[in-house]
């Protein structure tokens, strides 16, 4: 194991997103504040409570999860694609680093970004609307798991994509709709039966409900299933992204 090389790449990946924090950290906080202000405070007058929780509080775990997973995905996918398109990848591929080391360093970089963004929105919720945190340890574990899973997914997408257009398509047509349809702003019991059934095949539904349980103590699905789904996603995306990196099929000729 090339520990110095591995930790250097992690530092580079983390340093990369912190160096442009106005693009990578602040927007999540601003949009979350706007969601709280616009959706929360305006709709709270019409939807008083869901599962005994005030509406503004109810949407916050979903916002934490959306920030976590979109940032984790964006970090690895954009960094990998950028490296491919801007000829930076050869610097890594000609260095004495294994595919496993490169993949793990990328995943850790994306996980850090996902966690930073998720935890900042959590703090925003605690400070701004006095959100209670039912199980802090469970919440952090959940943010970590989801960050890791979606960071791995981003690495997979970054390797598979050949252009920004392809990457944007995957994010805009799959990730964002699945996030919104995962129950950020509603409980699935407010939906018709067919839509409830459909929601059950959306993995992000389990992520949102998992963190809703660890923070507010309420959830549409049993927390055990949410943890299991998060673990399954984490393992699947981690193995897939590492496999693709170690074989080099999409990054070497």
């Amino acid at each position: 194991m090339n520990w110095v090389g591995f930790s250097t790449l992690i530092k580079r990946e983390v340093g990369r997103f912190f160096s442009v924090y106005r693009q990578t950290v602040l927007p999540g906080l601003i949009t979350s504040s706007l969601y709280i202000a616009i959706f929360g405070f305006t709709l709270e007058q019409r939807i008083a409570e869901i599962q005994g929780v005030p509406y503004t509080l109810f949407i916050l775990p979903g916002l934490i999860m959306m920030n976590t997973l979109t940032n984790a995905t964006a970090n690895t996918s954009s960094s990998m694609l950028q490296m491919k398109l801007l000829q930076q990848l050869p610097d890594l591929l000609t260095a004495p680093l294994s595919g496993l080391e490169i993949a793990l360093a990328y995943i850790i970089g994306g996980t850090v970004r996902g966690m930073v963004n998720g935890i900042l929105v959590l703090i925003l919720g605690v400070v701004l609307i006095k959100m209670p945190v039912y199980d802090l340890f469970g919440t952090i574990v959940f943010i970590f798991l989801v960050s890791w899973a979606f960071s791995s997914m981003g690495l997979l997408l970054g390797q598979l994509s050949e252009s920004w257009d392809q990457l944007a398509m995957m994010q805009n047509f799959f990730l964002t709709p699945l996030s919104f349809l995962g129950g950020i702003f509603y409980s699935i019991y407010m939906l018709p039966d067919w839509a409830q059934t459909l929601s059950l095949i959306n993995p992000i539904y389990y992520m949102i409900n998992g963190i809703r349980y660890t923070t507010l103590g309420v959830s549409d699905s049993p927390v055990f299933i949410s943890y299991t789904m998060a673990l399954i996603l984490t393992l699947c995306f981690t193995f897939a992204s590492i496999y693709l990196m170690t074989t080099g099929k999409r990054i070497k000729q």
């Binding site: 090339n2 110095v4 930790s7 790449l9 610097d91």
Partner: peptide, 9 residues
Amino acid sequence: YQAGYYGIK
């Protein structure tokens, strides 16, 4: 960073 990839602190 480049030196780091080669194991040099």
